[in-house]
Design a protein around this nucleic acid. Sequence first.
DNA 1: CGCACCAAAGTGATTAGATGACTTAAACAC
DNA 2: GTGTTTAAGTCATCTAATCACTTTGGTGCG
Lengths: 235, 235
Amino acid sequence: MTPSIGLVERLTREIVQTIRAENLQPGQTLPSAKVLAERFEVTVPTVREALRRLEATGSVELMHGSGTYVREAINRRILDNPHYVPVDLAAAIELLDARVAIEPGIAELAAQIQSAEAVASMESALDNALQVETAVPAGHFHVELARASGNRALHEMLVSLLAIHSRTQQAARTTYDRLRDHDEHADILDAIKRGDGFEAAHRTRKHLEAIKTVVLADWADDPQTDDAANKEAEQ
Amino acid sequence: MTPSIGLVERLTREIVQTIRAENLQPGQTLPSAKVLAERFEVTVPTVREALRRLEATGSVELMHGSGTYVREAINRRILDNPHYVPVDLAAAIELLDARVAIEPGIAELAAQIQSAEAVASMESALDNALQVETAVPAGHFHVELARASGNRALHEMLVSLLAIHSRTQQAARTTYDRLRDHDEHADILDAIKRGDGFEAAHRTRKHLEAIKTVVLADWADDPQTDDAANKEAEQ
DNA sequence: CGCACCAAAGTGATTAGATGACTTAAACAC
DNA sequence: GTGTTTAAGTCATCTAATCACTTTGGTGCG
């Protein structure tokens, strides 16, 4: 039924199934390439090609001299393209538009769920943002908000959007006021804690639209050099 | 500045940049592995590892005896995890919930945009669905709807969601009435053509919730064998 | 005893060359 | 002109070896 699928692809699936069968958790190591090669009766280069596939999707990480480690993304459905080359500001705006489209719904779900620990995570994220120069990953308020929705697909989508956004030039240039950001997050969280889904959604939308406005304003003040931007836009 | 990044990862980036620099479009072939090896002054196995990474994310495809082809996903930001092992019905419901959360917003955007060609694509998808046993990919009404939103990130998210859903056992078992599906799609499209974003969003939400109801009903009638399901659920 | 240094083992990284299998298209025969 | 055959190009996989990095455990000095 699967007549002509390559050996590497089959091997990749077998490795994934092995990880799941042996219940290997993120952080744990896989057997060495040599051992895997013997177990699946292939050679080391073939195993390495399979591992490179898994590496590209963040399912594993190959660490020189140390070993091959299972990574979180093995449990993710939605990923960001690690080979995507970010370009223009229009793409950054597009990402913000996407967030405007989906995050209000996420906030509404979070308000309905009302998980205690999720609320705690969001409060924690609220504090962290004021102190550490927290990057995009975990601990980010919007990520915790998405986690609080209880829907892993939505959570993974938002993580992906933010990961892509962080690779954009505009990410660093955006100068959204730290305190204002904090206050608006607090307002959203407040609505969630009250279980007011409608208000949480509304505040989230306004918050993101405000960010978008700032980004656009920054752009107007100091338009970037968009050599590669035009080529991307016309396609 | 990039102290200890592997040779393969660097090579992968260089290949992507080469593709973009030479403006290679999906369907076109890359130079042979041997040529790439000489150009970047590495050996063939190293090139192959880099290509396997790109293959895992759908950016390229290696075809035995033919060549290495550029694929559409090289322009995608959001991907579905090709190594994800689908499991239980709960995950399928989660995907539908995610769609309920984001698709109404997409429909609203589509109604605001009102692209003529996008509307044509949706009408085409409407007809196809009644005739061909169209699978998940292009031509699917909901995919065209997402495309009509004008936001590529949203479009890619929906494609990813549907791709994952298609790999679920429940995908085939869902027996949503073909005619009812068509009629509800037509109703959504009708609202979009009128520019009524609110109504388009509302009808989209109702449509997806109805599908969810049917899936749940199917499950109640004929509960599946969920050996692997429980392990996933408790985590 | 405790700490620093060092050596060895394990592992991944990369290279090298060779063989096999598949695809495509050109050359050829009919 | 059509069909077959042949040859070249390409990916697929293997074998073998060397290099680089990490970790660990010991060894010896203080």
